[in-house]
Nucleic acid binder design. Sequence first.
RNA 1: GCCGGAGUGGCGGAACUGGUAGACGCGACGGACUCAAAAUCCGUUUCUGGAAACAGAGUGAGGGUUCGAGUCCCUCCUCCGGCACCA
Length: 869
Amino acid sequence: MSSKPYQPAAIEAAMQQRWRDERTFSVTEDPERESFYCLSMLPYPSGALHMGHVRNYTIGDLISRYQRLLGKNVLQPMGWDAFGLPAENAAIKNNTAPAAWTYANIEHMRGQLERLGFAYDWEREVTTCKPEYYRWEQLMFTRLMKQGLAYRKDSEVNWDPVDQTVLANEQVVDGRGWRSGALVERRTIPQWFLKITDYAEELLAGLDELDGWPESVKTMQRNWIGRSEGAEFSLPVCDADGVVQPDGLAIDVFTTRPDTAFGVTYAVLAPEHPLVGALTTDDQREAVDAFRSRVASTSEIDRLSDEGQLDKRGVFTGAYVLNPFNQQAVPLYLADYVLMGYGTGAIMAVPGQDQRDWEFAKAYDLPIIRTVQPPEDWEGEAYTGDGPAINSDWLDGMDVTDAKAKAMDWLEEQGIGRRTVNYRLRDWGVSRQRYWGCPIPVIYCEACGAQPVPEEELPVVLPEDVSFMGVQSPIKTDPEWRKTTCPACGGAAERETDTFDTFMESSWYYARYCCPDAEAQLDERANYWLPVDQYIGGIEHAIMHLMYFRFYHKLLRDAGMVDSDEPAKRLLCQGMVVAETYKIEGEDGSTTWINPDDVEVQKDDKGKIIGARLASDGTPVTVGAVEKMSKSKNNGVDPQSLVDRYGADTVRLFSLFAAPPDQSLEWSESGVEGAFRFLKRLWTLIDQHLEAGEPTSLDTQGLDDGQREVRRLVHDTIAKVSDDIDRRFTFNTAIAALMELTNHLARFEDTSPQGLAVAREGWTAIVQLLSPVTPHLSEALWDRLGDGRRLLEAGWPEADDSARVRQAVELVVQVNGKLRGRITVAPGCDRDSAQALALEEPNVQRFIEGKTVRKVIHVPDRLLNIVVG
RNA sequence: GCCGGAGUGGCGGAACUGGUAGACGCGACGGACUCAAAAUCCGUUUCUGGAAACAGAGUGAGGGUUCGAGUCCCUCCUCCGGCACCA
């Protein structure tokens, strides 16, 4: 009989206490040992852990514990991305200071992480809102200013005219301020930028070396950088007859298709282009101004989206420019699809070869000239493929590549243009007009201009004990805080009151964990750990965070602080955690979202969901879509209550088992119960095994067929689980394999001494292989099954290949590709013997009877396909 | 709009290099135990036909390549992530 049922709360508390007492997860740099740095994206301390955190950190902990069992010196740190907008919102709502709210959240969430049993080295904890952290990024910024890598320029922000404040994009809903409801304006203010474009080429090339990164992320980053080769050249402004004034204006355009220049039928300026005012004719000025103000209040995404209002997407300026290739005058338009931030902010339009130009030309009744011959059966509109040039004078007949080269040669010979490379990537704007962020360490002097705060005066400390009203940043409204003296001339001066983008903190925290107490941004310990061996985080960070993170590493390298070129070798992007939504739709059209916890689901006799109602009073509830867990849809599930009910090991097991890590994970209460059931069962089965008697030492040569078969399953499972964790990152299938082996061992009732020895080997392997997933349960069972060492010191089990040899294999027999039978053969059985055996099968005979065997395909140890006709 | 990803039983998912579609888990159904329920254990479970053996169909839709396609190619649909001030 079982001595004690599975009691996760007691086991987990005891194991966590042991790890704390023994400082199990504190690490030091040891050059004698191979290091492994496993990093999960640090959380924003929003108040409580959500399922996305649990999923992320469970994956990280699994990898960390696995690598540790392989014998590596594993660093797994944790910290807090503590600056950000939500603290300001919470401060307004609760009338607290953002700092106090943030620190309280950190305390609570740290406790939650500890309760989940993650193997963090808490002695390296980093909190980004503390001056001892952000002082170093201020120092780095002042150095970048001196190098010219940080610079100031005018840039647009969302301005709320009622609240008199800058709004984040997230705070603009349908063009209005989320609090005031006022129509948001675009306002231009000077802001600080980092020259990430100087690193565009290296950021692009570096992707080719990142073998451990998902292809999708690398592709997105390549497209984001958006390198394109082309030509820049000038179109002189002329009158409608093509007459150019000497010393008149010209517009510069960038094109990747100079070979199509004979097909230019109009040109376009971005609405914000500085020459618009000078070029617009009087009769068009009213229309142009109206168009510009409408575009100015439209977000960039809306500008690029096709809203089906093509006739409102542009306006004629009244001006003409001269195409230097054919001396033709073409009209100059403004259009919302041309952005000032890309290329020169002006394009030559070739509707025959560009679909957006084609649509614009159709809408505005502009001529279309094809300059590349489309294929015979071409049914599309603009043709962007290859083909001989036509209607292009001295380019006619050339293919696209040759024509491009010749057109660019010609531009350079004529001295009117040149070859250039353009990037879609823009410099990183780091200024935010908000309080709860790292102060930008700059002093403005009327006489000396913008000055970096001298190194010995850093950090510029953000006051934390403030009353925060939300309309304005306290350091902007306080007349005293900004008062200072100019470091250059000593005269009265003012501090910058903007703060950094919070991506600034999350761009270098990984390096600070290596040396959290260093009296510099980093010290030599960084190179022991870096680059990160495994980085884990959400796919939503595929572009921005991961680009800034790579960029900042190169800044650290160029400052001599790290040796490597890239911050992380392997990257795993986990999917979202989603859940079913439930709602009650009121008669007035209102929608009330109901939490899954409060809903009873009704099913038909096949288990298909046919309805739902409130658990409390039976009110019918509509089943909505499966969506990302969120407050707005009220479909979030609190991990804390799950840990309380089932224990950390069950929550960890479910979040790894329910889906592969890179796919979205659908929350399921009954799935969690299934995970809990498995752990209870495993506990009981191992208990029963221990009660069944002491095994002798295993005699691998003296096993009977049943014992040998079980041992083969054990070692196949060891090999599969190792491969799934190490190479494939498919933790769900690793767990499935362990469940399968558990089922086999449960059915193996051989209590002979050798039988018990085989079972002991199997149960021990399961406990070890499962330990990165369910560390508490595994360590508690290991204490009873193991060899006296700690589980974490005993290492990762290795598959014994000799145990995995099979006596016989099943071969699938197909006739014309359809399954018609199975035969059992010796491993490595040749084609002729397999065919002879297959032809004896009655069902195979039935399907080939009266037909001629035309071909036989044999895949050794797998399949035999007999093709008849 | 642009870039990236996904779509397989009632549900989550498996099928790794083009070779048995549905591992494992959930749910459902049947049974054992129980006064009963819970828990636990055993069995069945893609659909259609059939007592069964077995046959036919089947991986978002439509085409194609191949002895053989969930997997490769083309066209399309739907959903999700990102788009530079949410983190």
